[in-house]
Design a protein around this nucleic acid. Structure first.
Lengths: 215, 215
DNA sequence: AACCGCCTCCCCCGCGCGGGGGAGGCGGGC
DNA sequence: GCCCGCCTCCCCCGCGCGGGGGAGGCGGTT
């Protein structure tokens, strides 16, 4: 019983390389390719692969949203392995949140790739289900930070970050090389936008929304 | 190439059951058993298994500390799968922190167990390495909360928690049914002990030390 | 040109907060 | 017995903070 794989990457060379690596294995079969997220979703619907190798960075619909769409629309969705360049890429957490079964670094050895495909095809992420969920929940909070960040101007966000480091208005003014009155204005704006009564409540909101993170 | 497994559990019946399940697989071989953490460490040194199934709750040295000792002392340590009863068991995070390759619920199906053993034997936790590390770092912070809590009196800790909820002194006083002056005293004590200049810095310290947690 | 959002800075004002003292009751440990 | 830590409450005081206004410059949109 061979594992059917769909390769989604915007770079043709990468797709070919992945196909070569996986195709050399007798039990793995690359059944199709996609050059962007939308294509990945439609191809997956047609080809019904067991595993999708999904690049995160793709023009148009990126790998994350493609994964999300894939898992939401198909009734028997494939396992998705998200492929990324950097280990601490924030995409990784997004991927896990939307339901990817795993991720792989581009600098991984060929055998790691093969191993990963077999692994998710046969067992999904049997390990660390709670771990993944905890991570997902934790980084879901960062989403909300977006909403928070969107409401604050760039300067206000800077001021909030400095507030969250325990600086008082004078210190923030010095750090930003502006007058103390200016900082007061920004702080007032931050408090108003966050619905906070004082700077302490603002800092708490910053932590609770994942705008700043402990550690 | 068979996978050599060591089963560590304080209950004899459980050990036997695990041995029966794993022994039925041609590629898996239970080479030994241990009834507690210390025994697990010594047996692992003698038998050099590929995988250790480690129960968390054991008399004497528990599964966590045994895992820690195991990974620290052996030059080619086995993969450790921690076995626990509850999914949200805090032991799980401890296990990942000290370097376990995975965990398994006791209510899992037999095939899940077999799968998990093969999985970690052949690939360790190829998936989610960053996820595991993030989790470990995050829960390591909870340790430090102990040091902080030790320095504060019970009442002071209460006050700090309320401060971290954005309450001002009057509100804290009302919540604790004491006078406002009393709260001021406690707050002053908290600030002094934490080396904080104002309540905002105190709340930040509470977050950074894991004394309170976002979410 | 008119408009708007953002950053910058200014005024006055009230008050909560934090610093520096002290004090009484109450429990446990030497 | 005494001492010590903790919780409780009291005084005065200074100032940083936050609320309420306003204003000018600058860059983008319409």
């Amino acid at each position: 019983m061979t594992v059917r794989v769909l390769v989604a990457d915007d770079e043709r060379l990468v797709r070919t390389a992945l196909r070569a690596i996986l195709g050399a294995e007798p039990d793995l079969d690359v059944v199709g390719e996609a050059a962007n997220g939308d294509e990945a979703v439609t191809r997956a619907g047609e080809l019904r692969p067991d595993v999708v190798l999904m690049d995160v960075r793709m023009p148009g619909t990126d790998g994350i949203r493609a994964t999300e769409a894939l898992l939401a629309t198909m009734d028997e969705p494939p396992r998705v392995i998200v492929v990324t360049t950097f280990e601490n890429d924030s995409y990784v957490y997004e991927a896990l949140r939307v339901g990817a079964s795993g991720f792989l670094l581009k600098r991984s050895a060929a055998e790691d790739l093969v191993r990963a495909v077999r692994l998710v095809a046969h067992s999904d992420s049997l390990l660390f289900p709670a771990a993944v969920r905890a991570l997902a929940a934790r980084h879901a909070r960062r989403e909300r930070a977006g909403a928070l960040r969107a409401r604050l101007t760039e300067r206000e966000a800077q001021v909030l970050r400095l507030m969250a480091q325990g600086l008082n208005n004078a210190e923030i003014a010095a750090r930003l090389s502006v007058g103390a009155q200016t900082v007061k204005s920004h702080v007032a704006a931050v408090l108003a936008k966050l619905g906070a009564r004082d700077r302490t409540q603002a800092v708490i909101a910053a932590y609770e929304h994942g705008f700043v993170t402990p550690g």
